[in-house]
Amino acid sequence: MTQIKGDNSSTSRGDSRRIGLFFESARDLLGCLHHCKSGPLFLQGHPEYQGNDFIDCVVKAGPELGNSSFMNCYEYAFFAAWRKGLVDKKTLIEVHGEALESVMQGPPPPSGEAPAYNYYQSLTRYICPELSDPHQWRGGINEAPDIPAGWIVVLGNIWNHVGVSCGTRDSMGRQQVLGLSKYPDPGPSGRGMVQVSTLDELMERNPDHAQYVRWGIPGWC
């Protein structure tokens, strides 16, 4: 299994310098990028599954990525780490290759889950190998413990949404999260952008998030 954790990440709370670099990179992308679909069919090159710049660049040796590139929320986290040299392109290729293999050769996904479940479960092991236990969202102000800035936040059942904690709360006490999404602002293109939202807003917006949240140190920190 490919490892992407840095050499300086032996402490239980990760390497603070690397976490800081990752958060800085994720924050610098505010207002940038566009959201699009992704998954194993994009890696396999199906004609009807095109237009994901991250997959085209990392897996298919396409044009380099920029602030207007199209990708999904998982790939935003990978891209933010890559921009700061926290993970290299060779590792990203290996990680996504293993994720695709988990779909082609792995066990069937749990009952009721989409075929891409295994793919995103595999990616999650690299993005955040030590997730917290699920914290149930009961409605209203999120009662999860304060999540440090730069930590990964996973909403719902593995593959629903991934964001980066801001380590802050808004004026209503809601924990804030950086993420690539069409919500709450679809952006000038209508295709979303990197923006700050809150755990409560994301939970209310999408019932597929299964009403719980987990978090942890990024795998490259």
Rank of each mutant, 00 (worst) to 15 (best):
L131Q: 11
N160I: 06
W159A: 15
P184L: 11
N160T: 10
R174H: 14
G139N: 00
G139Q: 00
G167Y: 06
L155S: 02
V153N: 04
G167Q: 11
D185C: 07
V154D: 00
G179E: 09
P145Q: 15
V154Q: 08
D133Y: 05
W159C: 14
P184C: 06
G150Q: 11
W151A: 03
G140W: 03
N142Y: 07
W159M: 12
G179A: 04
D133A: 14
Q175D: 02
P186I: 02
I147N: 08
G167P: 03
M172L: 14
T168K: 15
G163A: 03
Y183A: 06
P184I: 05
D185N: 14
W159H: 13
W137K: 09
D185G: 05
E143V: 12
G187I: 00
M172I: 04
P186T: 02
R174P: 00
V177D: 04
W151R: 09
S132L: 02
I141N: 09
G187V: 02
S181L: 02
R169A: 10
I147M: 10
C166Y: 00
C166V: 05
W159R: 06
W151K: 07
H161A: 09
S132Y: 04
D185I: 00
S165C: 07
L155I: 02
P186H: 05
G179L: 01
H135N: 01
S171P: 02
G156C: 13
M172E: 15
M172Y: 12
Q175K: 12
V177I: 15
W137P: 07
G173R: 01
